[in-house]
Design a protein around this nucleic acid. Structure first.
Lengths: 211, 211
DNA sequence: CAAATTCTGCACTGTATGGTTTACTTCGGA
DNA sequence: TCCGAAGTAAACCATACAGTGCAGAATTTG
């Protein structure tokens, strides 16, 4: 629901090939050095066709970013639901959840490379567009996690005042920590180290929020 | 101590003018779209002079990045020492410290714009160079904070096993949270909101680490 | 099959950039 | 005062890129 399509120009099949290729090339090269020619080649499509579907390079980038955000957000929502639907061992469940969430970053390398590009260009992206992306992506992940924590708290396992804040803190102590050290997956980190960080993060979270 | 100078070519005054200008332009434009011509103009210096001092654009960028890291790290070290040397009200002192630390980001806008650029290019920066930057910058900040927390813990105000980990968690819950929402200062955030985030972060930190 | 839409390939424009060269000037120390 | 190191301005080169125009091939649709 994030990507508006004011034009239904062109064959949808080609359009998907283009966005797919664009995500890859933008992710690999960053916005500026990714050439439209390279994207066209990667998509197996004429450059002219790209300009048939998208007004210009910038629109292409933003559309791809929003599309990817939707996709990854859906995947993360699944992870949240899978691990947090029913709780048996709170600490272990939170750790497993966070590890899977971290793994999602490496499962969508193109997308998160693109995230890095967006963060780099943040100052040059129009405010409303940036907000649309944040809402479609990172923000939605939080809004999905919060009610689960709320429910766990209602069951008497946690003491939570503001569920969204708790969700933010859990995310910071685990995923954000790992992402920061790996530059969103650009630099490898030993699984044992990831595990250590996540475990420590969950433990701190629980010390703060456990009853 | 981070920047090696294999060449002492040229007048140091010019060199400083160049790095100063480069930091500004790289910060404003990002690596790729920052042109050497623009840097030369900003520095009030001939383009040839730049190539007299630096092998190429990439070396210039990296030198500037390392130089800035040293500078900002020193400033942050001061903030740490100022607020955490003696503790009167632990919660308030940690909040004041974190707020000042956050303010440092907006106090060095050029530098942190450059940080965004580095994070974006992380995948394309040679591993050792990236590591050198992390060590000179973010890493040093942690290593500076940890002993203070250790000392506070020894005084019986906190219960800390791993001081570096505690430092990491405090940083995540306050500065990183704000930085993430503001894209390192690229997007403005109301001071009241900053204050709210930092306060909540410190409180969670204390709930986890207070005796 | 026929018409309309879309895709393709390619040439082309205009602009920008990193980096070099050259010829000339400035400036500081001996 | 003189000399050499360093800086300056400008032209210059090769490359690259965004975006357009166009004629014809391919594909869809009726």
């Amino acid at each position: 629901m994030a990507a508006g399509q004011p034009e239904s120009h062109g064959r949808p099949e080609k359009r998907r090939a283009i966005t797919r290729a664009a995500r890859k090339v933008f992710g690999r090269e960053g916005y500026t050095r990714a050439s439209v020619d390279a994207i066209a080649a990667e998509a197996g499509v004429s450059k002219r066709t790209i300009y048939n579907h998208f007004a210009d390079k910038e629109r292409l980038f933003l559309d791809v970013a929003l599309e990817g955000a939707d996709e990854v957000t859906a995947a993360i929502a699944q992870i949240v639901d899978r691990h947090l639907h029913k709780i048996v061992d709170l600490e272990q469940d939170l750790i497993d959840f966070s590890l899977d969430r971290v793994a999602a970053v490496t499962a969508f390398p193109d997308h998160f490379a693109l995230v890095r590009a967006i963060e780099a260009e943040a100052a040059r992206i129009p405010g409303p567009v940036l907000k649309a992306w944040v809402d479609a992506g990172p923000q939605t992940a939080h809004l999905r996690l919060a009610p689960h924590l709320r429910r766990i708290a209602d069951r008497g396992l946690l003491e939570i005042g503001d569920a969204e804040q708790a969700a933010a803190h859990l995310t910071l102590l685990t995923i954000t920590d790992v992402n920061q050290q790996t530059f969103y997956g650009a630099v490898p980190l030993a699984p044992s180290e990831i595990s250590r960080i996540v475990t420590a993060g969950v433990q701190t979270f629980l010390r703060a929020y456990r009853i």
